[in-house]
Every structure is written in structure tokens, then in C-alpha cells.
């Protein structure tokens, strides 16, 4: 699903550039539940942004879903995110002015799906999240766990093969966090590739592939919870 080689990212700063990512190379097979672990400042969020095409690398190659996306432009990436990637954020990032349903519909709006169809589809996904009777609530009227489930529904509505989750349990209490992780694990069992960026060892322990980052470098492969191994190509 994901293969990167010598991925490097420099940020221009006052008084020189800061290298956030040092020639990172790894592979995440299709259907994995993978964690990218590391302390804050280790470069894990930078890596996630590059994987999601929200930012471009300074150097290196990137294959997503079998295609070389290294040289994708802004418009190509927008389409790729819309079709291939679902995002789950730590802060949920739901639009406060819209109902849960409206938020979930959003990716389909940019896919030019007709209003009736996308409403049906969004409602169906909300139902699988156990939020059928919350679809007309505003995000502020929902609990944190419910908001994150709406966000996951939004990530899933376009049926993308890859889910990128950035600290999905970071803003939730332990119990709700577990529920969200259970949900992601269930989605993984249905065959979706899921990449979770986290600093939490507990979260990482539930993943079959764990990539450790430190100071912008990928550490040698580590065994995950059920013995899976990340392929370190570096």
C-alpha cells in the first residue's frame, strides 16, 4: 500500500534549514494495521503529512497503492486524498456549522456525487458507527467519542483503501480511546489499511506493524503486537 524510499523533508527556518525527516525508507503492506511511533519532534507528523500529500517531500520517492506519487501536484493530490485516503485527526476537525451528516458527506461533495445519493451513503456510514440518531446534531452537541466516530465516518464515506489517523485517541479519555481503537481494529479486519501516528505505546501495542521514529530517522524494525514486522529498507 505504502512504499517510501529515502524520503527527506527540510523546513526553511530563520538561520538555515531544519531537516525534519532523514532519508526515511519503509513499506507498509496492504491490509496492515500500522503504527508510526515516536516522541513529539521525532518527525512522525511530518511523515504523516507527506504520506497524505498534505505536504511535499524535499527528496525521495513515494509509491501509494502501486503508483509513484512522488511528483504529484496540488490538484492530483487533492483527487488522490479524495479517492484513496481517509483522514482522522486528533482534534476531530469537524466543521462546526454543519450537522454530523453534512460533515460526513463532505468528501462526496468534492467527488461530485449527487446530493440524494451522498446523503444516503453518509447516513448509512453513520449507522455503522452507531450514530444513526445523531446525524442531524452539530458537532458541539456530541461527545468527544461521538465526534471522533463522525470523523471516522467522514474518512470512510468515500470507501478509501487507506486510513491515516493522527493521534486519534489523543483528545479522548482512556475508555473512549479504547472504543475508537476497537473501531479502527474492526475496520482493519474488514481489509482496510490503517496507519496510526501516535506517541502512545499502548496504541502501538495493538498494531501489527510498528515503525519507530527518532530525530527524523526511522529506527530498525520492531515486532508489533501479533509478531508482524515492518520492512525497513533503509
Amino acid at each position: 500500500m505504502i512504499r517510501v524510499e529515502h524520503l527527506t523533508k527540510d523546513y526553511p527556518m530563520a538561520g538555515g534549514t531544519v531537516r525534519a525527516l532523514h532519508e526515511v525508507s519503509f513499506e507498509i503492506p496492504t491490509g496492515s494495521l500500522a503504527a508510526i511511533m515516536g516522541q513529539s519532534g521525532s518527525g512522525k507528523t511530518t511523515l504523516l503529512n507527506l504520506l497524505g500529500g498534505l505536504d511535499g517531500p524535499t527528496a525521495g520517492r513515494y509509491w501509494l497503492n502501486g503508483r509513484d506519487v512522488s511528483d504529484f501536484g496540488v490538484v492530483e493530490w487533492s483527487r488522490e486524498r479524495n479517492r484513496t485516503i481517509g483522514f482522522v485527526f486528533q482534534a476531530f476537525n469537524l466543521l462546526p456549522s454543519m450537522s454530523a451528516l453534512g460533515n460526513v458527506e463532505l468528501p462526496l461533495v468534492y467527488r461530485r456525487v449527487a446530493p440524494r445519493q451522498r446523503r444516503q451513503r453518509a447516513q448509512a456510514v453513520l449507522e455503522t458507527m452507531g450514530l444513526a440518531n445523531r446525524s442531524h446534531h452539530r458537532p458541539t452537541e456530541l461527545s468527544g467519542g461521538q465526534q471522533q466516530r463522525v470523523a471516522i465516518a467522514r474518512a470512510l464515506v468515500g470507501d478509501p483503501p487507506l486510513l491515516l489517523a493522527d493521534e486519534p485517541t489523543g483528545n479522548l479519555d482512556a475508555e473512549t480511546g479504547q472504543e475508537i481503537l476497537d473501531l479502527l481494529a474492526a475496520l482493519h479486519r474488514q481489509g482496510r489499511t490503517i496507519v496510526i501516528v501516535t506517541h502512545s505505546a499502548e496504541v502501538a501495542a495493538r498494531c501489527e506493524v510498528v515503525l519507530q521514529m527518532r530525530d527524523g530517522r526511522m529506527l530498525p524494525a520492531t515486532a508489533g503486537a501479533d509478531g508482524g514486522v515492518a520492512h525497513d529498507l533503509g
Binding site: G52, V74, V75, N82, R111
Partner: peptide, 16 residues
Amino acid sequence: TREIGVRRAVGAVPED
């Protein structure tokens, strides 16, 4: 600003 970021993340092109 954040709304714009979300819209871009789910597939809005700059023209949108």
C-alpha cells in the same frame, strides 16, 4: 482557516 484545511484534506482543490 481550519475549515479550509479540512476541505483540502478531504479533496477540495484550490479552485474549489
